[in-house]
């Protein structure tokens, strides 16, 4: 399957590739949603769907429309156009029952610093309708999931940034939601906590929970997400699996060979190697394009060495950053 790129033509957004064929099993179905703030169209015809157990990434720079999209999905904001269904029920700010299906983990640390970790969880669990033994059991359970059981009696204001992030996620898990919405959950955390958070998300998806994950960290999207939608200026630019998106680039791996000798002759020799698509000479190096550079690397180096005294060999593989650059003309972190 090849990732689809959304047409720029008006009216085609409803056939967004992020939701190729919504099915009855989909936990989330977003159809042609639009939201304006004055003259600014923050979200423009976004459609997507997520299946149970699937982690779906919304990848885009700050201001791309990720948070506005999930704000509508979480029922905090009404779309100006389009529909959002969670577990088959229409989501809207005034809706109540449908919100039992979602667990929102906002980008802000939505916690009460003066309360203890366990008190925070008990409070939110009660608001989710949990009571008695079930409440206690779930609080204990999520504390274990996020690794905070031993700090549950401490006030949240004494937690590290990473611990607060983990507790922030724990709140979203209390009521076993069908859809977990994580809005940039690793912003500002140390690598160790980030890894713990990513492992938790992987485990939850493994248990069948649908996860909507927004991030502007390409490596997180690549690691976690089964499917990724690249969003910019409020529109989904492309969506699919990682490899499907990379194929949109229409380019393969690149190998840069630099050294002294006959660059042109080296280029011609390398071009004959199996798997090499092309070899070009630049000012001081040979630029080789190959479908799978690591597999062909030994042969490429051997061929080049007959004409060059190699000083450096560098492999560059396309990633989502390049896909984003290719689709939007700007870097992901701009």
């Amino acid at each position: 399957m090849v990732a689809d790129r959304v047409s720029d033509e008006p009216g085609t957004a409803t056939s967004s590739p992020a939701a190729p064929t919504p099915s009855e099993q989909d936990v989330l179905v977003v159809t042609d949603v639009e939201r304006r703030f004055g003259d600014l169209k923050a979200v423009d015809g976004v459609s997507l769907s997520i299946r149970p157990g699937e982690t779906f990434g919304l990848l885009g720079p700050n201001g791309a429309g990720k948070t506005t999209t999930i704000t509508m999905i979480a029922g905090l904001l009404a779309p100006d156009r389009g529909t959002i269904e969670v577990a088959g029920e229409r989501m809207h700010p005034s809706a109540v029952a449908v919100k039992r299906h979602i667990g929102l983990v906002p980008q802000d640390l939505a916690l009460y610093p003066d309360l203890k970790g366990r008190e925070n969880l008990r409070y939110f669990a009660r608001l989710q309708g949990l009571r008695g033994a079930d409440l206690k059991h779930r609080v204990d359970e999520v504390l274990e999931v996020v690794g905070l059981a031993d700090r549950a009696k401490d006030p949240v204001k004494e937690y590290s940034g990473g611990m607060k992030r983990r507790l922030n996620i724990a709140v979203g898990l209390l009521h076993r939601p069908s859809l977990l919405i994580l809005d940039e959950p690793t912003v500002g955390v140390d690598p160790q906590s980030r890894n713990a958070i990513l492992e938790s998300v992987e485990a939850l998806a493994g248990e069948g929970m649908a996860v909507l994950y927004t991030t502007h960290y390409m490596e997180e999207a690549e690691r976690l997400c089964d499917r990724i939608a690249i969003i910019d200026t409020g529109r989904i630019q492309a969506a699919g699996t990682r490899s499907e998106l990379i194929r949109l680039l229409g380019s393969s791996d690149q190998v840069r060979l630099s050294g002294t000798g006959d660059l042109r002759a080296a280029s011609s020799a390398v071009a004959q190697v199996r798997g090499v698509e092309r070899a070009d000479v630049t000012d001081s190096e040979v630029l080789v394009t190959a479908a799978d550079a690591p597999a062909a690397l030994a042969a490429i180096v051997t061929a080049a060495s007959t004409h060059l005294e190699l000083a450096d060999v560098e492999i560059t593989r396309p990633d989502l950053e390049q896909v984003f650059l290719h689709l939007t003309g700007k870097a992901l972190r701009d």
Binding site: T71, L76, L111
Partner: peptide, 15 residues
């Protein structure tokens, strides 16, 4: 300001 209001509003309670 802290974001807890957004979290409350995402929960199954009347606005």
């Amino acid at each position: 300001e802290s974001g807890t209001l957004a979290r409350l509003r995402s929960m199954p309670i009347r606005p």
